[in-house]
Design a protein around this nucleic acid. Structure first.
Lengths: 142, 142
DNA sequence: GCTTGACCCTATAGTTACTATAGCAATTAA
DNA sequence: TTAATTGCTATAGTAACTATAGGGTCAAGC
């Protein structure tokens, strides 16, 4: 199959496939007479694995390691478990941080309902004055 | 005050201050004889405003607009309220998406406790096979 | 006066994970 | 046959900085 078909089947853009090839995530495929890339079932599976990882937010560099591990699976897989665990911790931290940010933004939103000039806009004032509006938060220094 | 002092007072790195200058977020300051940047109270306030916005996750481009508005505040501030509202919506979407991702990652983690070789690692298998492990999710197509 | 170290300067390139553009070749459909 | 689609390469752009190279300025101590 040509690159466009592979792209459709995997949901990965054509340019991104070429990019993954350049980065060494997928091997250089055979070519047709006309120099078009030709992919087979193995390539499809490999790219599906990659996309599956990407949808889990796993970074290309980590995927590269996992692929190397797949290609050479005698080693102990504990590090994969650890990778996933570390990733979960990161995601949790992001969620907490965004939740915190959301609270602040909501406080900020309450500072002004719109319809003011700049100088009397409560949001602008709050951003100016470091928290007349958002002073209540114990978790940070806004 | 010189750039280092401004950096300390605002928590913004020296290089980032210079970057903000290049991007037009802060004006080009006076210079000493030795070509060092010299900042005053107004610069400090402006950069504090910027940092306050950045800590709220507001992007430099939006901050630029807000600064222009501050410099010229006769206009109606409704768009600021809308900006904050849109930002809140974004943050909420991110939180939801990350929460979803976290569920998947936890399912994935349960697939293997480590100590296996690559071929028998449940995590690798799950990432390979498209969700033998994560098939329960109704919200996505992992 | 001289040196050392902290701080400052500019310009350029690198980061991540792609995306966009330019300019051309091959293939396919009408 | 011609037009549209798909493919190719190489290069540059994106956001929001960060790092590097190679130098200049300044205050303190000897």
């Amino acid at each position: 199959m040509k690159i466009g078909e592979l792209a459709k089947k995997t949901g990965c853009k054509v340019v991104t496939i070429r990019y993954y090839e350049k980065e060494g995530l997928i091997p250089k495929p055979e070519r047709t007479e006309g120099n078009y890339r030709l992919y087979g079932k193995e390539d499809l599976k490999r790219l599906e694995f990659i996309m599956h990882c990407r949808r889990h937010g796993i970074k290309p560099e980590a995927i590269k390691k996992m692929l190397a591990f797949k290609d050479n699976p005698q080693r102990d897989c504990t590090w994969v478990t650890e990778l996933v665990g570390a990733h979960i911790a990161e995601v949790e931290a992001q969620i907490a941080s965004l939740g915190h940010l959301k609270e602040h933004l909501e406080q900020l939103r309450h500072c002004c309902a719109g319809g003011h000039s700049g100088a009397s806009c409560g949001i602008m004032q709050s951003l100016d004055s470091h928290g007349e509006c958002c002073a209540a938060c114990a978790r940070c220094t806004f």
